[in-house]
Nucleic acid binder design. Structure first.
Lengths: 178, 178
DNA sequence: GTCTATATCAAGATAGAC
DNA sequence: GTCTATCTTGATATAGAC
């Protein structure tokens, strides 16, 4: 009867999303075409449309998975941490550097929230808001700092000789004094 | 005799870059095709290749112009400012919100520095490094914060009800204490 | 400096048969 | 659930004539 699973996807749709994920991580966003995804499963592109409505839905499923993973990483990081903000920062950078293409897909453009699995974005955000003592403005500023450091690093925008660890520490200690 | 002008482009190449700029700002990155750029000048796409080597060169010229404009905006902002960091922040956000498509083009991906007009990136960076008292790590962290706030705003990633002015102030006051 | 014609490539998506 | 065939659209770029 079609639907099921925590993600709300059919079994076959899950397989498709996982094939897409492999392609994205191994070859980057240009490889993420309906043809290539289908090819990875040994089928033809038109067959995908029996399981997912189109490419937007596929990307939204990838992004939803990304938020769930980020939430798990965050939740593990703050568990028993004496410096939650620092632990979240390390976890965030690490998450992005391990899956740069997924991270870009998650942050590069406006979010189609209507296509996401419900609640995943909020779940990923919660640990940071708590680490900021419930101060939303501080949480947003800290997120912006972390995203900026991360995406500028991924885009190779800092000088090769830059000490990014030192820049992270500089920013973190500034925010910790808030 | 081809070359001339501060940008190192021929007169005709300058006109092409300006047509491209108008297209980018008015219709966004998808409109930035060689056909559309040529069409804006009343000519055909292949004619562009007599003046510019290709699309990468065209984009690099747009980005170079963007850096020059950003440098000018920064230099005006710090002139006689009692709070240089705050003035730069306002100028930065304003620059990006006024030309969101150009800002994205400038920051979204790895920079082809070999195609840029010489020195433009450094000129734009200088006022911030000076406002940070020459502390490169602080300057990088502050840039990351500003870029994060800006690009997340452009991407519509903050809740509609979020008070972004408050988040900017929160981050700025944190960095000012450094 | 511009043109036409063309090469080359690739994408997302649908119809309808099996 | 998958297929073939196809539609529709679009891109960057080059050759060679004028």
């Amino acid at each position: 009867m079609a639907s099921s699973a925590p993600s709300g996807l059919t079994l076959r749709a899950r397989e498709i999303v996982e094939a897409a994920r492999g392609l994205l991580e191994e070859e980057g966003p240009d490889a993420l075409t309906m043809r290539r995804v289908a090819g990875r499963l040994g089928i033809r592109a038109p067959s995908l449309y029996k399981h997912l409505s189109g490419k937007e839905a596929l990307e939204a499923a990838l992004i939803s998975d990304g938020f769930v993973e980020l939430a798990e990483v965050f939740e593990a990081a703050v568990r028993g941490a004496e410096d939650p903000l620092g632990a979240l920062a390390v976890a965030y950078r690490d998450f992005a550097l391990r899956r740069p293409h997924l991270y870009r897909l998650m942050t590069d453009r406006p979010l189609r929230r209507d296509l996401l699995a419900p609640g995943v974005e909020e779940r990923a955000a919660r640990p940071l808001v708590e680490a900021a003592g419930g101060d939303q403005n501080l949480a947003r500023a800290a997120w912006a700092f972390a995203h900026g450091m991360t995406i500028l690093e991924l885009n190779g925008r800092f000088p090769p000789a830059a000490d990014l660890g030192a820049a992270w520490r500089e920013g973190l200690s500034a925010f910790r004094r808030s």
